[in-house]
Design a protein around this nucleic acid. Structure first.
Length: 438
DNA sequence: CTGGGGAAGGGGCCC
DNA sequence: TGGGCCCCTTCCCCA
């Protein structure tokens, strides 16, 4: 016989112990704030902690301390509350930070929920758009209302205390019709999107700090850089956007909220303009004409990087960036000597390979570098080959079944390989190359 | 410290 | 709708 409430009570007890600092054997330091928790709970909830604690547990039986700079204490509060309650308090403001923290901590469930949250924001906004068009220029009473969600698992406590990050307003609506239909959804009062962006930037700073301190970051941590996008949001009056867009954005800044916006607010856009500038980013003031462009844009908020370079492991948010990276870094497509910047041909230069990195050097620079008298070993190495269309599962490999007859010179050093340039071959190869492997 | 160049990344837009 | 190209800005490294 199974008592369904057991799991819930067990976790509730653990959460109570955490609050009372009972049996806590792990300290987590986030930007100076100390969180206490139980190793076994963290171990069971996060791939990051699993790795960390499995190492430290071998070394010591004393309490473990983990330090994080990559996210804020508020964000970690949301994560830790989820770990101990199964409830994830998401808002339009914190979803990006929570998602990136979850990515850092390797909590795939949380990442999925965040993605769903973002997606549902868009879906709901899409409906609002439809409603707007059907209502024409009528004032939309829900204007400016941002939503937040409390996602929780199947055995959610009915008497759960309100979370500091959300102000639940129960009974307003339920999400249904999707995989998350079990989750309750509470709209709440909005906060300014500007706060989201400034936090976003804060977090970015902390990531930078971490990087400069040489702290290890998982490879799929979203990397937010200070971009014109954020500059636009930070200085809505300052950026050099087209006048049409400017008008729209100025209107948005008055009442930013999650979701698409379609001329709501004090300044109602003429419908012509709405048709031209239709899709509003829920997380910044950016507006695009096409849904596909918005989808692409959202990756800079979510940190999603679905296109890995299989040569070096670096991940990209866009296929064309991956292609560009691949051509530049691993294919040595530019017919320019890396050292003297002169144009090189197959006669006047060669491809140099350092690990997975390839570039070209002219014969003079090769000679200068003293790598013109290296033994030739055709069998030892071969150029990078790439997965072809229809062979997406294949992994990159070095020269098995190499079709080109490029001459290869291998350096005596670890992994420096010189190849004779054959532009025609490269160009032919380039057309076939599809570095995207999903 | 600074300027130049390369690489990355974001947006617009065409196919 | 996705892929891809072009253009631009930002960041980082190095001389």
């Amino acid at each position: 016989m199974e008592i369904s409430s057991h799991q819930f009570h067990l976790l509730q007890q653990l959460n109570e112990q955490r609050r009372q600092d009972l049996f806590c054997d792990c300290n987590i330091l986030v930007e100076g704030k100390v969180f206490k928790a139980h190793r076994n709970v963290l171990f069971a909830s996060s791939g990051y902690f699993k790795m960390l604690l499995s190492q430290s547990s071998k070394e010591t039986s004393q309490s473990t301390t983990a330090t994080f700079q990559a996210f804020s204490p508020d964000t970690f509060t949301v994560i830790l509350d989820f770990v101990y309650s199964g409830k994830l308090s998401l808002t339009g403001q914190n979803v990006i930070e929570v998602m990136s923290a979850a990515s850092y901590l390797q909590m795939t469930d949380v990442i999925s929920v965040c993605k769903t949250f973002i997606k549902s924001s868009l879906d709901i906004s899409e409906k609002e758009k439809d409603r707007y068009f059907s209502l024409s220029d009528k004032d939309v009473s829900s204007n400016g209302v941002e939503r937040s969600c409390v996602y929780s698992g199947g055995w959610r406590a009915e008497s759960s205390p309100p979370h500091p990050h959300s102000s639940p307003d129960p009974g307003t609506c339920m999400m249904g019709g999707n995989a998350w239909s079990n989750f309750n959804y509470y709209p709440t009062s909005q906060r300014n999107a500007q706060q989201q962006l400034s936090k976003h930037e804060q977090r970015q700073d902390s990531i930078k700090k971490s990087r400069h301190l040489g702290l290890q970051q998982p490879s799929d941590i979203p990397h937010y850089k200070s971009s014109k996008l954020e500059d636009r949001a930070a200085e809505p009056a300052g950026h050099a956007a087209p006048a049409e867009e400017q008008v729209h954005i100025d209107a948005e800044v008055e009442a930013p909220h999650v979701g698409f916006q379609f001329g709501q607010g004090a300044e109602v856009m003429p419908r012509d303009d709405l048709a031209r500038m239709r899709f509003k980013c829920p997380f910044c003031s950016h507006v695009v004409k096409r849904k596909a462009d918005l989808k692409r844009h959202l990756r800079c908020h979510t940190g999603e990087r679905p296109y890995p370079c299989e040569a070096c492991g670096k991940r990209f948010s866009r296929l064309d960036h991956l292609s560009s990276h691949f051509r530049t870094i691993h294919q040595a497509c530019k017919p320019i000597c890396r050292k003297c910047k002169r144009h090189v041909t197959e006669l006047t230069g060669q491809v140099v390979q350092e690990g997975t990195r390839r570039y070209r050097l002219c014969n003079e620079c090769l000679a200068e570098a003293g790598i013109d008298s290296i033994r030739i070993d055709l069998e030892a190495e071969a150029p990078l080959e790439f997965p072809q269309d229809g062979d997406k599962d294949s992994r990159w490999h070095y020269g098995e079944d190499n079709k080109s007859d490029v001459e290869i010179v291998e350096d005596g050093s670890s992994d420096l390989v010189i190849q004779q340039v054959d532009d025609s071959e490269d160009e032919a190869e380039e057309k076939e190359v599809k570095p995207n492997i999903r």
